[in-house]
Structure formats: structure tokens, C-alpha cells
Simulated assay, not measured.
Amino acid sequence: MRHRLNFDCDGAALAASLDEAPGTTGLLIVSGGNEIRAGAHRGMATLAQRVAAAGFPVFRFDRRGIGDSEGENGGFATSGRDIAAAIEAFRRAAPQITRVVAFGNCDAASALLLHPPLALDALILANPWTYEGDVEERGGPALPPAAAIRARYLSRLKDPKSLLRLFKGEIDLRKLFRGLAALKAPVPPAAPDSLAARIDGAIAGLATPATILLATGDRTAQAFVENCPSALNRIPVERLVSPSHSFAGNDGEWLAERILAVLAA
């Protein structure tokens, strides 16, 4: 059964939803961007329903200034208190739970990394956001990372239709070679105070067990791989061949299966 409730965060009333289940391990869903707790196309509400049906209670919430919650929206960079208050509210609402696993996609994954210590037993981090600024400020990544552009060039060069256009002179060779030459330049290391460097450092010092989920065709995931390559050697990574940033459609089945595996561990 699903219940609506409110909890306090620094004097603001935050709205939440609890999908009840008897399990002692619970899932806390942290919304990314400025999404409400239901998620894009109600994706997080659907995920919560499925996880609860498998026996694990699920708690979702709107952070301050979002959806039905009071207060000022400070973005993911200031959401540490919201997450901490949600964990406490979850434990009060489902007193049988002894273990809390948090899931966050995009800048919600970044928020879970940037605001320790949080009273969590495991993390599931999907497509962590490493671009400077909030998702809404940028309107999403303006360009794919260099690795993705390289892959696109290579795929086009292997495509018979693209090769035919090349032989017909329909492709500007000077522009093509300039682009390929520019992509050979090494990627400079992130500045020490950049978001990418902070995310990489947070993963290096992470004491909580974590799993990273990446949609390989998603620009945000591609940027994470390029900006934080060493992180991939520290934490288990599972990849889905998909461009869907929010694991829409059938990709939601893959996402739910990975989350349930962590909850059941």
C-alpha cells in the first residue's frame, strides 16, 4: 500500500511517499534534477511499486522547493540535509527496516556522493552528473564528451552509406580531418575544485558499498566515464547498452533487476 506523508527539514515541510512492504531492507529514491518524486513519466513511482511488490519498502520525497515541498530549492549541491532528513523519516515510517539503500540518477547520484556521512548501508549510483552547474542550468549537456564523438566518427567511417558519400565528395574532408585531429588531443585533468574532481575524490574515499549503473549511450554517463576513469576501478560497474538517461521503457526492467539484486544482497 502507498501512503503520503510529510517530514521536517530545517523548518520546511517536505512531501514524501512510502510504498509499504514487510522487508527489513528499504530503498530510498533520491530524485535527480528538479524532478518530483514520481520521476519522469512516473518512472520512479512505477519502480517503487515494483520494488515494494518484491517485499522491500520504498521511500520517495520532494526536496525543498520542489513539487509539494516547502522551502527554497538550492539544487543538488545543497541537498544533503534533505537526504539526511528523508533517511530519518523513512526509518520512523518503516520501523522494521535495519538497512537503507539509496538510489539516485544523474545529479541525485552526485548528491549522494558529495554529502557524507549519510546513514546509508549501500548506494546505487546511476549516470552520475559531472558537468559544472545543475542539469536545469545547462539544459542538459550541450555536447557529447570527446570519447562519444570519436565513437560516432568511427561508426560513420564503417558505415557503407557514409563511405559512399565520402567517395562521392559529399563530405568536407578538411572539416573531417580537422575534427579527427582535434579529438586526438589528450583530455586535460579536471581542476581540483571541479565537480568531476570532487566526485572522483568522493568515490576514492567512499566507505559505503556502492554500485554504479551506466547507460552507455547517455551523454551524462559518457562524461562520467571520461571525467572519472579511475572511479571505474574502485566500484562495481554495470552497463546497459542504451541511450536512455532515465532508463525509460523496457530499460526500466533492467534498472529494477539491478536494484533488487542490491537490496537482496
Rank of each mutant, 00 (worst) to 15 (best):
A108M: 09
A196S: 09
S31I: 00
V101N: 03
R174T: 14
L173P: 02
R64T: 01
A13S: 15
A207I: 01
V225G: 02
L173T: 10
V30K: 07
N73I: 08
G39A: 10
F103V: 10
F247D: 08
L154R: 14
A190E: 11
A111T: 12
F90P: 00
D159M: 03
L173F: 14
I235G: 01
D193R: 08
K158L: 13
L47D: 05
E136F: 12
A126T: 10
A86C: 03
N127F: 08
P116Q: 13
V225C: 13
Y131A: 13
G23T: 11
P243D: 15
R178P: 01
A13I: 03
L47P: 00
R50T: 09
P57M: 04
T46Y: 06
G11W: 04
L164S: 14
G104I: 12
T24M: 09
A207R: 12
V101M: 10
R258A: 12
P141N: 06
T216Y: 02
M44A: 05
G140C: 02
F177T: 13
N127V: 08
H3W: 05
E132L: 09
F167L: 15
E136K: 06
Q49H: 10
A48C: 08
L213Q: 03
A54H: 07
H41R: 14
A248K: 03
G65K: 01
A53L: 13
E170W: 07
S79Q: 14
K158P: 02
V100C: 07
T211Y: 02
T220L: 03
N73P: 07
I97L: 06
R152W: 04
N127Y: 06
L166V: 06
F247P: 07
A207V: 11
N250R: 15
R99G: 06
I29V: 15
T78M: 03
C106I: 03
A265Q: 14
G205N: 15
A38Y: 07
D68Q: 06
A93I: 05
N73V: 05
F224L: 04
V237Q: 11
I212F: 02
L232S: 08
D68P: 01
A146E: 12
L164N: 10
E257C: 10
L232V: 11
P192F: 08
P236L: 04
F167C: 07
G33I: 05
R138N: 15
P209D: 07
G201C: 01
L164G: 10
I259E: 09
I212Q: 04
A13E: 15
C228W: 11
G249I: 06
P236I: 02
A191Q: 10
A202T: 09
A221S: 14
E170S: 04
P236Q: 00
K168L: 15
L113W: 07
Q49A: 14
R99D: 04
A52K: 01
A210C: 03
S230L: 08
D251W: 09
M1V: 02
T208W: 09
A119L: 00
V187N: 12
T98I: 02
A52G: 04
L183G: 08
R234C: 13
E170T: 07
A85G: 00
P209K: 01
G39C: 14
K175C: 04
I83Y: 06
P236M: 07
P57F: 02
S230V: 00
R156H: 13
G32M: 01
R60C: 14
P189K: 14
S79A: 11
S31C: 08
